[in-house]
């Protein structure tokens, strides 16, 4: 049995009310609770007030903003709803796929898109009971001052383990944050930072209100590839989002733009660079998959922060990149 620590709960009805409550000292935002409650049970945080977003209806909308050319998805939309929503499936199939592969159906019925984007970083030395952690004296992210993943390391390397984040960055999505000081919009590519203790630039008093994903302006193919030990429940151990913009609506058309984003490395997702060689090549050319897999393998260095050996996961990054592209080609 894992008991929650004591706290007060507030259930505001609007974003403004929630922002006012969140400005109080010791306040902490919670949406579906599927990430936060286990962490509280493990005593990784001790907030005095949980500000629940469950009753904030304005966070639950999915709408096309034709003028801005974006799909606006409320941060409070459940992952089940994201994965099944006709607009998401039509315009952003890789996002629907990623949302539908988070954890289990039960958790997707509770967890939200905003919660998945803000999923706390994870590490095999952190996501344990307080009793377990006491045996190793904690670590940088919990009660201690050492890193068990990188001996001598002064920087926490707990893994960004969201399924949706690599996909959203590959689609050039932006996040809208709200607080009593107003609102701001920033690209998700600039949202994460390399510190597992504070891996986003969101201030504690800010609420993620909305994700804005640009609608496709031309033909493209997108994929999300996830490998975990079990096909359900588990967090990803290999996580790759791919996006190819094409000159025509066929897999033998030339690639006009490519984005590849990899998760579960350190505390921020990594955008794979130096992919220019595949621009102008047909997606169906086997050399394209080989070239991209090679760049992924060269640039992504998994750590022993999550289960399974880092060298194995590095090899699997290349394997799953090749397989994901092969699937796109086979689907036509």
């Amino acid at each position: 049995m894992l008991r929650l620590p004591g706290f007060e709960v507030a259930t505001p009805r609007t974003i403004d009310e929630a922002a006012t409550l969140l400005a109080r000292p010791g306040a902490r935002v919670v949406a579906g609770g599927t990430d936060l409650l286990p962490n509280l049970k493990h005593r990784l945080e001790q907030p005095s007030l949980l500000v629940s977003l469950a009753a904030v209806r304005e966070l639950g909308e999915v709408v096309v903003d034709a003028r801005a050319g974006v799909l606006r998805i409320g941060a409070g939309v459940t992952l089940t709803a994201v994965s099944e929503h006709p607009l998401v499936r039509e315009h952003l199939p890789s996002l629907a796929d990623a949302a539908g592969r988070v954890a289990s159906p039960l958790i997707r019925n509770m967890g939200t898109l905003g919660g998945n984007v803000n999923l706390d970083t994870r590490c095999r030395y952190v996501n344990q009971t307080a009793f377990w952690r006491s045996a190793i004296g904690g670590c940088l992210k919990s009660e201690g001052n050492v890193c068990h993943v990188v001996p001598g390391g002064r920087n926490c390397v707990a893994a960004m383990s969201s399924d949706c984040v690599p996909v959203l960055i590959s689609l050039e999505a932006a996040a809208v944050l709200r607080s009593t000081a107003g609102g701001r919009e920033l690209p998700l590519a600039e949202y994460f930072q390399a510190d597992g203790r504070e891996h986003t630039v969101r201030r504690p008093d800010e609420i993620m209100a909305e994700i804005r994903v640009p609608l496709p302006t031309g033909p493209r193919r997108c994929a999300y590839s996830k490998w975990s030990v079990r096909k359900s429940i588990d967090f990803p151990l290999v996580s790759i989002a791919l996006r190819f913009d094409l000159a025509a609506d066929a897999v033998d058309a030339a690639i006009t733009a490519v984005r590849v984003v990899v998760g579960v490395l350190g505390s921020r997702p990594r955008e794979v660079t130096q992919l220019d060689a595949v621009i102008g090549q047909p997606l169906s050319d086997p050399k394209v998959a080989e070239a991209i897999a090679a760049r992924v393998h060269a640039q992504c260095k998994p750590l022993e922060n999550v289960p399974y050996e880092a060298p194995y996961r590095r090899e699997m990054l290349a394997v799953h990149t090749r397989r994901a592209i092969a699937r796109l080609v086979a689907e036509g």
Binding site: G33, L37, P38, N109
Partner: peptide
Amino acid sequence: DKGDCGACTVQVDGVPKLACLTLAVA
């Protein structure tokens, strides 16, 4: 008691959810 096993599954307004990760006040 942390959302992995599903033994606590109940329905809230007909939707199956994990009672171990649902605050009673919710």
